[in-house]
Amino acid sequence: MTRSKVRNRSITSASQNDLHDSFGELYQSLTNAYWVASTIVDKDRIRGAADQVFDILTDLNRADLKSRTEDFAELKGQVAIATKKLTALQADIDSIIHNVGVATQVVGAIAKALTASTTFFG
């Protein structure tokens, strides 16, 4: 991530936070008014407004999460590279183990061949 990209992002993020706080405060005021409203008409009116502000806050939270999606995608590549290197190391270790297994098979085959040759040639 470049320095200017980081700076731009933090400026955007600061103004996004201000916007979020403004709507957050409004939502808080509306819901506080809702708890104490006494008539159904008042409650319905406040609820309608609170629903709208909730949708705006939801959009802002979505946008906040979306702003990091690219960074998540970049990281995936780095993690995959490290895992690939680990898998190569694992394959090296497995080949050491495999070689002993092959040696065992070879020794077994030699023993079998020698036993067979003894039967034929005494």
């Binding site: 706080d21 957050g24 405060e25 939502y27 808080q28 629903d51 909730f54 806050l57 939801t58 999460l65």
Partner: peptide, 18 residues
């Protein structure tokens, strides 16, 4: 005051309020 909220915790808090 309704300030400082963001991300999943803000969203979940507001969802419960809703």
């Amino acid at each position: 005051q309704g300030h400082g909220g963001h991300g999943l915790r803000d969203q979940l808090w507001n969802e419960y309020t809703q």
